[in-house]
Design a protein around this nucleic acid. Structure first.
Length: 883
RNA sequence: GGGCGGGUAGCUCAGUUGGGAGAGCACCGGCCUUACAAGCCGGGGGUCACAGGUUCGAGCCCUGUUCCGCCUACCA
């Protein structure tokens, strides 16, 4: 006899089955298998990462899909791996060095990179272990890292090919520069924030006269790099100064007044200071007018010698302060206005980003973006929910070249070599030993590394062995679904599509499922600094992994953000326990059971049996359809309701009476109980893998694991609308009796006699046939059903659809309670009748609404009227008794 | 500046073709009914942000307003 504890204890169970699945290699995907493939690549978490609620959410959804498809018989690959996370990881190790009182510069490049590898070996596996704890069925044998050998080869192949095709180029441009990380950033890596700043108005005198222009700037220190002042050619205010020369204050540099239609006449004074080396617009302007570019800053954000000795060495913000003071003293500063404007910050360290002129590598984006847009347009890739397609197109249409070089050390070093003899740039797959132009052996490799997202963009095929033509690639590319948050739609998803199409000639995935992001209960982004983090590991510890996973699935509606409420987790923990106890009940009643979980189709099934089978099939249908459409919340809700509100609340209760006597009825009920439980566990398994495995292993089945058992399929033959109607009727009577009992404060233990008066033969037959259920579940002593039942004067009564429910209460009747109850109900009926009357007396409604809608309303009106009359009569007798 | 998402019960959220609004938690009343008190039974609670419009009929479709959140953008 199998015994379960009274409460489900997840801790030990989860460890046990996690190990079991691992040992049995159930997560392993075999590319030689014949069955159709289903593949997902994990959004590779950073090796610096620790499992946060976002990971838990993202990976739970993927695991649900993987487990579901696996049970459906697909050859499932869920590809694991981690990302080297260039800047983030470098920062972590740099902080470590800082504690040791040293820096990466002191250490030198190679030893530093060595140090990062050491760090990776020691701590890089954390996130994978945590994903295992979460139950993720990733194929760990295929674990990849964006810097491992194969992926590095892919990166090199892609870089060289793009360079050869002219899609990668190097040049001097204004880029976003983080002075703290001392590297370039792509446009995406800059986070803009609206901040309260100042607009400084400065006087720039003309060389030839005493006149001056007033220009406005938010970054006064950049004036040290000014090489012109620009006005709009249409701006009549400045026509008289055409061709004039100005003298830059402080430095006394002579700079020209130029005309360019870019200048907005309505902003400030309509005169714009031009700093080509420190502003992207000014840079373009400078190119158009062949202006000199003067870079006044060191890479760390301190001013250099070109900023004049007075400011050299000062940090940009100190310089601003000092300069403003000086300008004020010298009368150059006219006024300071408050101005709120958006300021860019480094997405890794929050430092204010500086537009900075430097030599960088870029990917020409337009030619790659075009086919990537086409793929979504023609449906080769489907984005779910669809509204994200707009955002995708919006960005892709305005895409700008991608700055891919980073001045850090941790990452893929750019495969380009500079010939020290002739200046040739050599970009090749294999490290060259001499210059292709002048044969010099004096070559130095480019020191920059690639943007981390460059290697991530190749993830769907690089992980499968590309550029080799591997069997894995053949089998699993294109992948089936990509599941991710919208925060990396541009960073990652769009770039994967571009690279996938370019290098594989085929989209990287068929569906992109974009889920919401998890926020705290205030709707704020969770972050350690705010202290509003829900730690999934703690939640798993406290409530169990299955409860967490189910909660996440239940919250996964297709919106934009999720405010996670902790009490919901508790609620779903209770659901685990409910399932546990239902199973406990079933197993307790299986001592003499010789059968299996397979439904005995020949058995003589009761109405309740056929009802639960019908309901099971509806649930099965819904679960499969919802999973197909990535409606995880519907999946969760459907199973929850089925297990709790139908299987537990009704079927198990209905089953009890039939279980009490040995015989064929008991066997049949045992069979249905176990069959439905088995199916429900399977439906639930993708969401709650651990508890379902634990219970399933105790059922009379001979499979190895629920995770490789067959997922339930919809069977139309098990739908039975007639039986569902019958049971609805039975439930209505039971609920009706309970309602009266509750409302009239009758002792729950008190056995009642119940009369049901009805003219309807079907109802009579059903209630008489199912009277046992009513007696058991409503605690009824005697049930009498018929057309000519006399209603005793002292009785509570309510009118249900097509029948009157009468409960004689001689001696225990509280007339006042009954009057309140009936009056309450009459009020409701009156309200409904007024509404219906209005509707049905509207000629337009009767003329235009579909016949079935009108008929439905008319029937409702008739039955409500009948109910009203009966209740009024009943109320009268109550009132008489009260007098 | 442009775009997107949201405003539904006290709280957190569902609501897939338009036919009188649902769940969980919280609340009220009653129960240790031998699977489960992390439970069972019953109950109360909503002008579906606001204003128009389309329609016989709108939480759902259209227009406008407003509040919250996000993305995007070269007005110094």
């Amino acid at each position: 006899m199998i015994q379960l504890d009274k409460q489900y204890e997840p801790g030990e169970v989860e460890k046990r089955w996690g190990r079991f699945w691992e040992e049995k290699k159930f997560f392993h995907a075999d590319e030689t298998r014949k069955s159709p493939a289903f593949s997902i690549v994990i959004p590779p978490p950073n090796i610096t990462g620790r499992l946060h609620i976002g990971h838990a959410f993202n990976n739970t959804l993927q695991d649900i899909l993987a487990r579901w498809k696996r049970m459906q018989g697909f050859n499932v690959l869920w590809q694991p791996g981690t990302d080297h996370a260039g800047i983030a990881t470098q920062n972590v190790v740099e902080r470590q060095l800082d504690k040791e009182g040293t820096t990466r510069q002191k250490l030198g490049r190679e030893p530093f990179v060595e140090r990062v590898w050491e760090w990776k070996e020691e701590f890089g596996g954390t996130i994978n272990k945590q994903l295992q704890t979460l139950g993720c069925s990733l194929d760990w044998e295929r674990d990849r890292f964006t810097m491992d050998e194969g992926l590095s080869k892919a990166v090199r192949e892609v870089f060289v090919t793009l360079y050869e095709e002219g899609l990668i180029y190097k040049g001097d441009y204004i880029i976003n520069w983080c002075p703290r990380c001392r590297t370039a950033l792509s446009d995406l890596e800059v986070e803009h924030q609206e901040e309260q700043g100042h607009l400084y108005h400065l006087k720039y005198p003309f060389k030839e006269s005493k006149d001056f222009l007033i220009i406005a700037t938010t970054r006064p220190e950049t004036m040290l790099g000014d090489t012109a002042v620009a006005v709009n050619p249409k701006d009549e205010r400045y026509h008289q100064f055409k061709g004039a020369t100005l003298v830059l204050p402080v430095l006394n540099r002579e700079i020209p007044l130029i005309e360019d239609s870019y200048v907005d006449t309505t902003f400030g004074t309509g005169a714009l200071k031009v700093t080509p080396a420190h502003d992207p617009n000014d840079f373009e302007l400078g190119k158009r007018h062949q202006l000199e570019t003067i870079n006044i800053m060191h890479p760390d954000g301190a001013m250099n010698s070109l900023a004049s000795p007075a400011y050299e060495g000062l940090d940009r913000f100190e310089c601003r302060k000092k300069l403003v003071g000086d300008l004020k003293d010298s009368g150059v500063l006219v006024k300071i206005e408050d101005l709120s404007h958006s300021v860019g910050h480094c997405y890794r360290c929050r430092t204010v980003v500086e537009p900075y002129l430097s030599k960088q590598w870029f990917v020409k984006a337009k030619p790659l973006a075009e086919p990537a847009m086409q793929a979504v347009r023609d449906g080769s890739i489907k984005i779910v929910p669809k509204f994200w397609e707009n955002t995708y197109f919006e960005w892709m249409e305005n895409i700008r070249d991608w700055c891919i070089s980073r001045q850090i050390w941790w990452g893929h070093q750019i495969p380009a070599w500079n010939c020290q003899a002739c200046g040739e740039i050599i970009v090749v797959r294999e490290t060259p030993d001499s210059c292709s132009a002048c044969s010099s052996k004096n070559l130095i490799q480019e020191t920059d590394v690639l943007d981390t997202w460059f290697s991530s963009a190749l993830w769907p095929f690089s992980t499968l062995g590309w550029p080799e033509k591997t069997e894995s690639l053949q089998c699993f590319y294109p992948t089936s679904v990509l599941c991710t948050g919208f925060d990396i739609l541009f960073f990652w998803v769009a770039r994967m599509i571009m690279m996938g199409i370019k290098f594989m000639g085929e989209v990287p995935f068929r569906d992109v499922y974009i889920h919401a992001l998890i926020r705290d209960s205030e709707g704020q982004k969770m972050s350690k600094t705010k202290g509003n983090v829900i730690d999934p590991l703690e939640v798993m510890e406290q409530y169990g992994t299955d409860a967490l996973r189910f909660t996440l699935a239940a919250f996964a509606a297709q919106g934009r953000d999720i405010k996670l409420a902790e009490d919901r987790i508790e609620g779903y923990r209770n659901f685990c326990n409910k399932l546990w106890n239902a199973s406990r009940f079933v197993l307790m009643n299986l001592d003499d059971y010789k059968g299996s979980c397979i439904l005995d189709e020949k058995a003589n099934l009761s109405t309740a049996d056929r009802w639960i089978l019908s309901r099971l099939n509806r649930a099965t249908k819904e679960v499969n359809e919802s999973l197909e459409a990535f409606r995880f919340n519907d999946v969760a809700l459907t199973i929850y309701k089925f297990i709790w509100n139908e299987y537990c609340d009704w079927y198990i209760e209905l089953a009890k009476s039939k279980l009490s006597n040995p015989g064929p009825e008991r066997v049949a009920v045992q069979n249905v109980l176990i069959h439905v439980l088995d199916s429900a566990l399977k439906l639930l398994h993708p969401l709650m893998p651990f508890i379902t495995e634990e219970i399933w292993q105790k059922l009379p089945q001979n499979g190895e694991s629920i995770m490789v058992s067959a997922f339930p399929e919809f069977r139309e033959s098990h739908l039975n609308e007639f039986v569902e109607k019958e049971m609805e009727l039975v439930m209505e009577v039971i609920t009706g009796v309970r309602n009266i009992r509750g409302e009239m404060n009758l002792n729950p233990g008190l056995k009642l006699n119940v009369l049901v008066k009805t003219q309807n033969d079907e109802i009579q037959k059903t209630l008489q046939g199912q009277s046992l259920y009513i007696k058991e579940l409503a605690r009824v002593e005697q049930l009498e059903v018929g057309p000519d039942i006399e209603k005793p004067n002292v009785s509570a009564s309510s009118v249900l659809g097509g029948m009157d429910l009468i409960i004689p209460l001689e001696g225990i009747m509280d007339f006042q309670e009954e009057r309140n109850r009936v009056e309450k109900e009459l009020k409701k009926i009156e309200k409904d009748l007024i509404f219906l009357d209005k509707k049905l007396s509207n000629p337009n409604f009767v003329k235009k609404a579909p016949a079935e809608v009108i008929e439905k309303d008319e029937q409702r009106k008739a039955s409500l009227s009948e109910k009203q009359v009966k209740l009024q009569i009943h109320l009268k007798t109550i009132e008489q008794a009260l007098c």
